[in-house]
Design a protein around this nucleic acid. Structure first.
Lengths: 205, 205
DNA sequence: CCCGATCTTGGACGGTTGTCAAGATTTTCC
DNA sequence: GGAAAATCTTGACAACCGTCCAAGATCGGG
């Protein structure tokens, strides 16, 4: 049983972490709306009930804050993607579920995905983001590869491409759909559905 | 025959356009090095022999300058991509040439491609860039589709996906390769070669 | 209830940004 | 050659940026 002092200190540390999370989540909303290049610490604070000075009490500097935001985003992503195509009896069902799942994911939070592609582009310039971005990419690649493995099991065939190549192609389709969706295209979601449904079987020839 | 006044005025207008191009090209170098979020007009001017004030003599504002830069970049792109896989006798040859061509394109100017993905992400926030970005995307899609049509002719088969889907998948592979290349991966180019070679036949099943 | 630790505020700092206008310089043309 | 038009420089402007800090507010344990 922990001493009361230990309990108190842990509770204090938790409180600190809770506020960090709260501020980071608010920052994520602002980032998703404005993009990396147009988001300042003051603007972030304006979207909270706190003053801008507080951000430097909970975060060392801007890079620290945005890095933490990216990690928060990552957690939300992984949670959202876990088993998004759980039940499917036939290969065709799984391929359709894959397209539906990705289209639903896009429609659910387009601004967050926009932010993801923004930050991933920034990581090509800002080395501080690179590791976190690579980890998210890895998780998304795993998600796609679980899908491919599932298709392999249902169809009895073996995939003929690498996990990274499969992820890259799905990601290309998703990114293009996001572009059109943000631009106001009404057919972007349907096209994404169809393209994903068609892509999955192609990975086995 | 044009009057001498008309010749002079055209020559003057040309001079104006020449300097605009010169300044935009210098700006492109700076943008490619630093990225959109970190590039200021003064930094751009520092990379020329002129003062920062001159930029506002040739461009209305920053958006105008960067838009013009994107159009310049587009012209360079198209010129570079025209017929980059002209000669190929068999489908397998063409598939290999496709991978080689894209890998060579990446290795030739990685920073320019990095800038392209940065600006494309920015266009999701800045409407002013959207049309120009869409036009470049269109040209790249045409380039990919010419490749697919060429493969169709050599193999006698018909493609089973849309031009935009084909472009999106190749683009996904290219973008992933760029990420790894910029991060210092020594195998990124080879992987891009293999993945593109494998993707092309997949579009016909 | 009070005192110290913790949390929060709001202002100030040095620096940078985009923009602009007035003046200096160069070019053009009669 | 000299006036007019163009090109270019320079300095200033208000606004904004990230960062820091002194002081006030709030909280929790003794």
């Amino acid at each position: 049983m922990p001493s009361s002092a230990a309990v108190r200190s842990r509770s204090r540390a938790d409180k600190f972490e809770d506020r960090r999370r709260e501020l980071a989540d608010a920052a994520l909303l602002t980032l998703a709306e404005l993009g990396y290049a147009r988001t300042s610490l003051r603007t972030i604070a304006d979207n909270t009930e706190f003053s801008h000075g507080l951000l430097h009490y909970y975060f060392a500097d801007k890079i620290d804050l945005i890095t933490y935001c990216v990690q928060r985003y990552k957690d939300a992503c992984v949670q959202r993607y876990e088993g998004f195509v759980a039940e499917a009896r036939t290969p065709a069902e799984l391929a359709a579920a894959c397209g539906n799942g990705l289209a639903a994911t896009l429609a659910d939070a387009p601004l967050m995905h926009r932010l993801w592609y923004d930050l991933r582009a920034q990581s090509l310039y800002e080395e501080a983001f690179r590791d976190d971005v690579a980890e998210i990419d890895g998780r998304l690649q795993d998600m796609i590869w679980r899908l491919v493995r599932g298709y392999a099991q249902l169809s009895g065939a073996e995939p003929t491409c690498s996990p990274s190549a499969a992820y890259a192609m799905f990601d290309g389709l998703f990114q293009q759909a996001l572009q059109r969706y943000v631009a106001g295209s009404g057919t972007a979601l349907d096209e994404l559905r169809d393209n994903c449904r068609d892509l999955l079987p192609r990975l086995f020839v």
